[in-house]
Design a protein around this nucleic acid. Structure first.
Lengths: 233, 233
DNA sequence: AAGTGGTCTAGACCACTCC
DNA sequence: GAGTGGTCTAGACCACTTA
């Protein structure tokens, strides 16, 4: 019985992962307690805790006080997704980024935007449309509404040198946001921008950000046909 | 000078978050060291470490040894995305789940699938098509290729009582996976399934999973028109 | 060379939850 | 009530990176 000592939390994590992958511990099965594992691995309980916590965060393990640690029945893993800053996205692909302001005006938003941002009927918002380009090709079409109540400074900003997207990232802090992804057929306006046929399938990102229950901005990005968002698990 | 003591790592995290949101610490700015913060907050350095680590994981802070901790210049936050198990997705919405096997056959995959799974020309794979339904309505269309070399047991499984999706989740462990999201226009086959017009924009999830560099399966889910994937940040 | 975060340890107490 | 994970502490050493 050689007790090879696992001194780092990463080593403990990898060993536990190996046992789960090799069905030494099967889905639904109860693992030994942290204290027992610490004894087996020859390390402090804190180290085991750190390792098991990391695995629980990825969805591989379920942990509850008193109930103990089990292998998740449905190891549907979680993936972390970077919410993109368009310019950085483009630059990361080694392409040249540029953008152009298509329109900028104060107006009253349609009902769906009002509902999403929870603003009163009759309130006017700043409406900004921007085209983002990679190597001169249309990359994403941004349609944004900004609350002037939440962001009075936006009224003075032209959004020509710096896009509304980046200006807000740099100048405004938000406390929470909703993000959703979907697909839609290109309108004729969008089709023209992307040089495609109306009806082409576009990948869409909608995001609304809040500061303490005050909506700051809501934005829709339509990406060029064929756009893919990638991640690993 | 009352030194209100922050005893928990969550309290420290919230206080640091507050200072970043209130521009007490601005993007790019260097924070005090862990030791200094521990003194100020009246807690152990370990506690500060835990708090700052959590904030760094969300992308709000950048930390490097010797260089110290800075507020991220681009606090483009990370969102964790649950990779869906279709049945659980449907059930979570309070709808009745069912599925039907559309086809199941061994055949040689087209070139793009071969490339994606890195299998040799001439290899035959198991090709399974499944329709997932919510309250009897088409919810997602699954087109899957399974490596019989990696998963010999799949050859004996009919995938009628249990969908290929769930059978694989329960029976196979994978060590890594690629996931990508995109949009595509419905083919006539897909349009018929969803009761829509050909060309309708569909939200698509492609996933390939691996066990130690052996491809297990690659799958494409096309979701019904209007489908949204949602997350918070 | 030196400063910073990364981590381990041993012990302790607490919070939650199951029985 | 009792067992389990959650967390805090104080101290220590180490790894990495920048000045």
């Amino acid at each position: 019985m050689t007790e090879s000592s696992l001194n780092t939390w990463q080593a403990v994590r990898d060993e536990v992962l190996r046992r789960v992958q090799n069905r030494i511990w099967s889905p639904g099965e109860l693992l030994p307690t942290e204290a027992e594992l610490a004894t087996e691995f020859g390390c402090a309980r804190t180290t085991v805790n750190r390792a098991l916590r990391a695995l629980a965060e990825t969805g591989l393990l379920d942990r509850r006080r008193k109930a103990g640690t089990r292998v998740s029945m449905n190891p549907a893993r979680r993936a972390t997704l970077e919410i993109p800053v368009i310019r950085l996205d483009v630059v990361a692909k080694g392409q040249r980024y540029s953008h152009s302001l298509l329109s900028r005006e104060r107006s009253r938003p349609p009902a769906d935007i009002r509902a999403r941002m929870q603003v009163l009927r009759g309130t006017s918002l700043l409406h900004v449309k921007t085209l983002h380009m990679a190597n001169g090709q249309a990359y994403a079409y941004e349609d944004r509404w900004i609350s002037l109540q939440a962001v009075p400074l936006a009224a003075k900003e032209a959004f020509e040198d710096i896009s509304a997207n980046e200006w807000l990232v740099k100048n405004i802090v938000f406390t929470r946001g909703d993000v959703s992804f979907s697909a839609k057929n290109a309108t004729s306006e969008e089709a023209e921008v992307f040089g495609t046929e109306p009806g082409a399938a576009l990948f869409v990102l909608d995001r609304t950000t809040w500061r303490d229950d005050i909506a700051i901005t809501t934005v829709r990005f339509c990406f060029a046909p064929g756009h893919r968002m990638h991640t690993e698990i």
